[in-house]
Write a protein that binds this DNA or RNA. Structure first.
Lengths: 132, 132
DNA sequence: TCGAACCATCACATAGATGTGAGGGTCAAA
DNA sequence: TTTGACCCTCACATCTATGTGATGGTTCGA
């Protein structure tokens, strides 16, 4: 598939698809005329990339993470240098922190919304402390 | 406490503490001489802010989230305009997506590291598919 | 064969978070 | 009183992910 279709199917501007390629996150083949040629698997890959970017990971790190997601992954073992493994460990750690932080705050927001909604429902002027 | 101490206790450059203030995420009082004066609660707050920034939220959103975290929160109810609630709902959603994405990828990395480590241990040249 | 709808590269612009440094005030201890 | 370690406010630089547009090639159907 060409860049336009991939862009549409992933909701990603073409500009960014080219950017991700420049950052070596995706490596489409080229048709005879020079057009980029993406195979089906790139749809998920791009969605993955966007999710990680949105979650605060830089392309540099995403590039290291992506190979871990390939299944079957048998082929990729030789690439695993000790430094890369260390990077991954570190990144795993940071991801856990992020998850913890997001979860904590999500729960807080959820609780807040719950209380506020209930408050609105039972009377706009009442400010029940919710009994602590 | 002054900015230097807060910087040290939160591991945050002074520059950024001033930046967060400019973005109205934190509003320290001022001493007579113009120095910023942070009270104890700012330590947690700054850590919170940094966590959220690291997780990909922009200051604009963090600013809206922070009031939800204050406990007791009784005072803050009147601020809750319908638009703000809608924003929070939306942000809650995005946070859930982020959490899901991070969790998925974290698990994949974890599994990858597990397999690779086992592989290293049992013999560097073996490439067991891991049995599905 | 022409035009619309693709594609390509290149370059410059923006926005947000952060680094860095200049120029200058405050204050306490030597 | 001077010095060192703080603090202040600019202001400009940098990096990353993005937006936007110029310029031009390819393909295909009218």
């Amino acid at each position: 598939m060409r860049i336009g279709e991939l862009a549409e199917r992933t909701g990603t501007p073409r500009r960014l698809l080219r950017y991700y390629e420049e950052q070596e996150l995706i490596m489409p083949t080229r048709c005879a005329n020079g057009y980029r040629d993406y195979d089906e698997r790139f749809v998920d890959r791009v969605v993955q990339i966007r999710g990680l970017l949105d979650a605060g990971l830089p392309t540099r790190i995403i590039k290291q993470i992506l190979p871990c997601l390939d299944k079957p992954r048998v082929i990729h073992f030789k690439d695993a240098t000790p430094e890369m493994l260390a990077t991954l460990e570190g990144e795993l750690d940071r991801m856990n922190h992020r998850i913890a932080c997001l979860t904590r705050n999500r729960d807080a927001i959820e609780e807040y919304l719950g209380v506020v909604r209930q408050d609105k429902a039972s009377g706009p002027s009442a400010q029940s402390p919710g009994g602590r």
